[in-house]
C-alpha cells in the first residue's frame, strides 16, 4: 500500500467524522452550512486528485474540476 494513499484515507475519515460531530453538536446555522459544504469539497478534491490520480493529468482537467465544484458549492451556499 502506498503511504500517500494511507495518509489521504486517514484524512478523509477524520473529515467525515468531524463533519458528522459538528452537525450533531450544533444546530445547522448560517455559519455551519458553509463549513459542511467546504469540508465536503475538500474530501471531493482529495478523492479526485489522490485516488483518481487527477494530480497527474493536464491542467485543463484539474482546473475544470475545481471550477465545476467551486460553482456548485458557491451556488448551494449562496442559496442557503
Amino acid at each position: 500500500m502506498k503511504n500517500s494513499l494511507i495518509l489521504v484515507f486517514t484524512l478523509l475519515l477524520i473529515i467525515t467524522i468531524t463533519t458528522t460531530c459538528i452537525v450533531n453538536s450544533f444546530s445547522v446555522s448560517a455559519f455551519i452550512a458553509p463549513v459542511i459544504m467546504v469540508l465536503a469539497a475538500v474530501k471531493f478534491l482529495l478523492v479526485a486528485f489522490q485516488f483518481m490520480e487527477l494530480k497527474k493529468a493536464h491542467s485543463f482537467w484539474k482546473i475544470s474540476l475545481i471550477i465545476t465544484l467551486g460553482l456548485l458549492v458557491i451556488l448551494i451556499i449562496g442559496i442557503k
Binding site: 463533519t19 458528522t20 452537525v23 445547522v28 452550512a33 459542511i36 459544504m37 469540508l39 465536503a40 474530501k43 471531493f44 478523492v47 479526485a48 485516488f51 456548485l72 448551494i76 442557503k80
Partner: peptide
C-alpha cells in the same frame, strides 16, 4: 464516491 460526497452533506446534514 464523488457523487455521494456531495449527496451526503446536502441531504443528511444541511
Amino acid at each position: 464516491d464523488l457523487i455521494w460526497l456531495l449527496l451526503f452533506p446536502t441531504l443528511y446534514l444541511f
